[in-house]
Simulated assay, not measured.
Amino acid sequence: MMIAHLIIAHTNPKQIERLIGRLVCAKSHIYIHVDKKSKIDDFIYLKTRPNVYFIENRIRVTWGAYSMVQATLKSMEQILASKMEYSHINLLSGQDYPLKNPNEICDFFLANSDKTFMKFLSINDHWKEALPRLHNYHLTNHNYPLKYRVQYLINKILPKRKMPANLKPFGLSQWFTITSLHAKYVIDYLKENKNVERFFSMTWGADEFVFQTILLNSEYRNNIENNYRRFIKFEAGATRPMILTLNDVDSLLMSGKFYARKFDDNIDNEVLNYLDSVVSIN
Rank of each mutant, 00 (worst) to 15 (best):
L275H: 01
I243P: 08
K184S: 11
I8H: 12
Y86S: 01
S280V: 06
V150E: 01
P159Y: 00
T245H: 02
F199L: 00
I7H: 08
L73I: 14
T72Y: 05
S251M: 14
P50V: 08
I32G: 07
S28E: 03
L181H: 13
A71D: 03
I123Q: 11
E235L: 11
I40Y: 12
P132A: 06
R230S: 13
F258K: 05
K156M: 10
A165M: 14
P169K: 05
P169Q: 07
S75N: 03
G94K: 04
M1D: 09
E197N: 04
I40G: 06
K184F: 06
I232L: 08
K74V: 12
S122C: 14
Y189W: 01
L216T: 09
R261F: 09
L253N: 04
M242G: 08
L246F: 08
D114M: 12
K128Q: 14
L253S: 02
L6I: 04
D248I: 07
I16V: 15
L46R: 07
F109A: 03
T213E: 00
I232E: 10
K147F: 01
E219N: 13
F54A: 06
F120H: 15
S122D: 15
D125R: 15
L131N: 12
T62P: 06
Y144G: 02
Y66S: 02
M163T: 00
F258I: 05
K233L: 13
G256I: 07
D41G: 09
P102F: 02
E219T: 14
N223E: 14
S201F: 03
N227T: 08
I3L: 07
L91K: 10
A260V: 00
A26C: 10
L91D: 06
R49I: 14
N273W: 05
I3S: 04
P98S: 07
E192I: 04
R58A: 08
P50A: 05
S280D: 11
Q151T: 01
L99M: 04
I8V: 14
N101I: 01
Y144M: 11
Y31D: 02
R18V: 08
V210P: 00
T179G: 08
K47I: 07
K119F: 15
K162A: 11
Y86M: 01
I44L: 12
Y148H: 12
Q95M: 10
L275D: 02
Q212Y: 01
K37I: 09
E85L: 10
V150P: 00
N90C: 14
V186M: 02
H135A: 12
I154W: 03
V61Y: 10
L158P: 04
E208P: 03
I59D: 11
F209W: 04
L73P: 04
R58V: 09
L272S: 01
H29M: 06
N90W: 10
K168V: 15
S28K: 02
D248W: 03
T179E: 05
T62D: 14
P169R: 05
A111G: 15
I59E: 13
N90K: 10
V196H: 00
F263K: 06
H88C: 02
V196S: 01
W127Q: 15
N227R: 12
V34I: 15
N222I: 10
G256M: 06
K128G: 08
V34W: 10
S93P: 05
G64K: 07
I123A: 08
N143G: 10
V61D: 09
N101T: 02
Q95T: 11
W127M: 15
M163Q: 03
P132S: 07
F209I: 01
Y137C: 11
A81Q: 12
